[in-house]
Design a protein around this nucleic acid. Sequence first.
DNA 1: ATCATCTGTGCAAACGGTTGCACGATGTAA
DNA 2: TTACATCGTGCAACCGTTTGCACAGATGAT
Lengths: 330, 330
Amino acid sequence: MAVTIHDVAKLAGVNSSTVSRVINGKATITPDTKERVYAAMRELDYHPNSLARSLASGLSGAIGVVVNARDAEAFSNVFFSRSLFAIEQAAQARGYQVIIANGAQSRGGTIEALMKEHKVDGLILPPTTVKPALMDTIGDFPYVVLGTPDTLRSETCWVDNNNEQGAEMAVRHLQKQGYQCIAYLGGHQKRGFTKRRIRGYQNANSGTETILNTDGTAENAYTLAFDALKTDDHPDAFVCNDNLAAFGLLKACKELHLSVPQEIGIVAFDNYPLAEYMDPPLTIVDIDTAMLGEQSVQLLFRRIENKVGNQQIMLSTNLVVRASSERKAK
Amino acid sequence: MAVTIHDVAKLAGVNSSTVSRVINGKATITPDTKERVYAAMRELDYHPNSLARSLASGLSGAIGVVVNARDAEAFSNVFFSRSLFAIEQAAQARGYQVIIANGAQSRGGTIEALMKEHKVDGLILPPTTVKPALMDTIGDFPYVVLGTPDTLRSETCWVDNNNEQGAEMAVRHLQKQGYQCIAYLGGHQKRGFTKRRIRGYQNANSGTETILNTDGTAENAYTLAFDALKTDDHPDAFVCNDNLAAFGLLKACKELHLSVPQEIGIVAFDNYPLAEYMDPPLTIVDIDTAMLGEQSVQLLFRRIENKVGNQQIMLSTNLVVRASSERKAK
DNA sequence: ATCATCTGTGCAAACGGTTGCACGATGTAA
DNA sequence: TTACATCGTGCAACCGTTTGCACAGATGAT
């Protein structure tokens, strides 16, 4: 049915191994022969069967991106999808396919299946999957964790943005703007990156320490912020764990007639598309998700080619200053 | 190196073809034999090589999801990533892998490569790729378009939500709430789904027709809405093409001290995570992205199994009524 | 008891490439 | 001229499955 390498070989008057070598460019071939092969390929509209290729070469030509999302909302968070965009781009540039696999850990087997059934040559994993059991089965199969694992931090291979540094930067910025009493708002305490952001907050904070952890919703952030702001000695600035928290906070400020940034300063993590349209526009600790995605793929390829051992890459974050924290500005 | 079907066969004392039949369950096998094979598989921790399997069976066991995103923002739009979540889920339930491929049309070849190199058994395509040239090369390869193609609408296979009906529903709802002069705000005119929403708006609208197309940004929506609302006989309600447009509109209303929903009613397409936290919470024409994704995969599988010809599936939308359009409520 | 049918399993040929080895032709140095 | 690399290509084994065909033994009908 489909045209194979043998058909091309016959038409070009050479052996199929020669065609293979022309395609892969690994051997020296007479320009004349090469031309005849190319011509035959063109004439027959030949496309090599990647499955046969993979079987023979032992390489699937794909990488797997594992996600751990319960629902569509978790899956569609900007952090993840922006990184995925960069991952796909970098992989495509190297001729690799990207396979996404959600909820891979739940059945306890999908990650293992992806590797052992030779569906992928390497994996990009979320930090939550990093557990001793998995690391045992993964052996020296190439993988990169996108984020900092809570455990086995120094023995695994990962790429992350520096959340601690980001929070420190946020606090220092607020301090420079003259805010005195800075609080931290939002995020589940149990999540690693929240913990690290809070640590950064604590490192840089010199005033009273106020940490208001939420369940992750804007609603909850609103409630907690409202209560905190009602008190007499309320905080005059907040570092928010994400845009949702900042959104709840803004609402609370509005209702209590506290002006932002005059009375309350706000810096939030994550640059949501809406952040700059908020009222006032939000100052943001921006995570370079594109760089994060790209670096993770590059590192993964180095691992696949066995050029390096486990490595850790920490990218720094950027502060995007907007009106919500610029006291002098207004 | 890796354990193969032959190792299992040897240990179980049978032929490898028997092992294959046990795995695939297509033939009748003596319970006793079956048990021995399973035991051997367990003992050796055998995982069938999917590449060899695919080569022999001619099926890759993967579907490709093609996207057309220039940048990370376009890629991470909630519509797409929510659908992708559902697609992945439905595919996984059938034991299929999901491969994502971005910008596949640009090089003019990636879609073709995915099919002709046997990387996928079927494709989910964005409407923008549907052009006569592609349909020629795609032949009877299984595919489903996620959205309504602008061309070849009746000859292609697609799944979409009923944008026209959604807009009609929005207008009728606003009319019932007593709004008289309803405008349409947002969206590029050239995009198919925007056109269809506008058609729905026109179908149901009985007052003056006002269509304010934007470049897609909240900024632009703000500007256009501001100008429109400054006039004496300004609209008293808007159907917004997306949440961003609604966001710009809300800002304009606030600055002009027009209260929502008393003076201005708003309904917007797409249920962004922040929509219900806005002030006031937005009434939404909700698209069931999960259903959209699932239906497209189910249809694709029917095509792969050659059970059906090209089909079109149109899903209706739901109105989620919140404060932004409930005049009587407040 | 005989013959036809059915069941479970083995054999071997695909599936469509890659690649180590061999070998003739050509080039280079003595 | 001889001896020895080097280069380009063919041969054939191999990657790990699936599957059509064959066949022996069990089953059932007559």
